[in-house]
Structures are given as C-alpha cells and as structure tokens.
C-alpha cells in the first residue's frame, strides 16, 4: 500500500464524518431547531466541555466495569473453552447452558442479578460478563478443535503429553480464533455494562454514563445526553481499535489474516 492510499483510507471516513456534522449543524440552525429536540454538534461539543468533570468521572466508572467484565470473560471463557476441549462429553453437557446465558437478553436478567447481589458494581460486572464471555468461549472452543490433523499426529508420534499438545499445538492454533472473539467481546462488554446500568438506574457520585444519559433526559439536558452518547461510541471504537492492534501485533508474523498482500 502506498502513502496516498493510506492517507485516503483515513481521509475518506474522516471527511465523510465532517461533512455529515457540518450538514447537521447547518440544518439545525436553518430551521432553528431547539436544543431540547435536537442539538447541533457545536452545542453537544460545548456540553461535553462544560460537563467534562461529571462525564469523565462517569466514563471511568463505566469503563472500569467494562474492562473488568472483559478480563473476567477472557479468564472464564478461556478456561471453560480449555475444559470443553478436553472431552466432547464435557462440551456436550455444558455448552447448552452457555448458549442459554447468551440468548437471554441481559436487560431481562439484570433485575434478578441486582436483587441477588448486594453490591451494584458486582451486579453490573456480572451482567457485562454474561454478554461478553460467549464469543470468547465459542471462538476458543472452535480454535482449540481446529488444530491441523497431521500436526496432531506428529505430536502423538513423538509421544507428546496432553499438556504439551494443549500448550504447544492447540492453544497456538486457537489464538487467531480467540482474538477474533476478544474483539467482539470488547464491544459487548461495554454494551453489557451500559445496558445493566440503565436497569440499575443508580444515581450518586459513583454512577456510570448510562445514568448520566437517563438523568440528562429527565432534566431535558439533551446536549449533555448526546455528549454522553458520543463518549460511549468513542469508547467502543477505541476498544475495537485497541483490540485490533493487539490482534495484529500477535499474528502479524504468521497468520494469513495479518498478511499484507505484497506486490
């Protein structure tokens, strides 16, 4: 890829975004739409700056829940995947329950979790974890079972122990699958955290971005609402990009997905 192409790759979505924002601002002004119906980008930016102390504190709370949930999803999802990969029977017995957790909407489980768990933070964490762990589990199980057959034979031929085959063959084979799952799970952890916050609806100083959105909507502070929304989106994009970078760094030397076509 040459420099011009690289520039275009970033410039194209950037210019498009700027154009849409400009159009938005223009239309809002032309029709004199009041802020409590639809604020323009300038009003939103102003709210973002003015409310930054409040919003950034809430952002940290939400991000912390999402990050912890992701860590928990990686550890539990990864460990469960390794357990599933040990025997078809374990996988058959447990996988349906993982699917049940996955298909049940988190907003429907959250009230229950909030009743059962005393600490709101822990309850939020559990909800975000439920949403985030499935892609990690299912992808890693698939990856662990996708090791090359001939390589597996070779390991047997050389008398590899189960542990050696897991560590040296199956886990590296699963890495690209795991990382793809991780990238999905990163976004889901954030979504899960925000959704659970909505259900919890807790106020006070330690509340997350979702509560700021609720609060702003009750108070008809629509620009602040949009500002919080923009922050959540920006975080989602940042998480996705960061995990993409991790994926690239870990796979670039050997995996097809990280190859750049050479001409």
């Amino acid at each position: 890829m040459n420099r011009g192409e690289a520039l275009l790759r970033w410039a194209a979505p950037g210019l498009l975004g700027l154009g849409v924002l400009a159009l938005w601002e223009g239309l809002v002004r032309a029709w004199a739409v009041p802020d409590y119906v639809l604020p323009g980008p300038v009003a939103i930016a102003r709210a973002l700056v003015a409310d930054w102390p409040l919003l950034s504190a809430s952002l940290l709370v939400t991000l912390e829940v999402a990050a912890l949930a992701l860590v928990a999803a990686v550890s539990v999802g990864g460990l469960l995947a390794v357990l599933f990969a040990q025997s078809r029977w374990v996988e058959r017995a447990l996988f349906p329950y993982a699917v049940v957790l996955q298909v049940t909407p988190v907003v429907a489980i959250a009230p229950l979790v909030l009743i059962w768990v005393n600490s709101v933070t822990v309850a939020l964490l559990i909800c975000a974890w439920i949403v985030a762990f499935f892609p990690i589990l299912s992808n890693t199980v698939l990856g662990l079972n996708s090791a090359d057959r001939n390589l597996a034979d070779l390991f047997r031929l050389y008398g590899a122990t189960r542990w050696q085959a897991l560590w040296l063959l199956r886990l590296p084979s699963a890495l690209p699958y795991f990382l793809a799952g991780l990238r999905v799970a990163g976004g889901l952890a954030l979504i899960g955290a925000v959704a659970a916050e909505f259900v919890a609806g807790v106020g006070g100083s330690g509340s997350g971005l979702a509560f700021r959105i609720l609060e702003a909507s009750f108070q008809l502070r629509i620009p602040r609402m949009f500002a919080a929304l923009a922050l959540i989106s920006a975080c989602g994009i940042a998480i996705f990009a960061l995990l993409g970078l991790v994926q690239h760094l870990l796979l670039r030397r050997w995996h097809e997905s990280a190859l750049r076509a050479e001409r």
């Binding site: 001939n150 390589l151 050389y158 040296l168 890495l175 995996h255």
Partner: peptide, 23 residues
C-alpha cells in the same frame, strides 16, 4: 507428510526443535 505440516506460529528453528522439545 505430503504437506510440510509446520507450525505457522513457530520459526524454522522451533519447528525443527519440536520433537526434541517433546522429548
């Protein structure tokens, strides 16, 4: 094997060392 059947994530040296490592 008919295919080289190497571990794509490992260097040539690590691939060749595999049987020794397993032993």
């Amino acid at each position: 094997f008919q295919d080289p059947t190497l571990m794509p994530w490992a260097t040539a040296l690590d691939n060749v060392r595999l049987p020794l490592r397993l032993a």
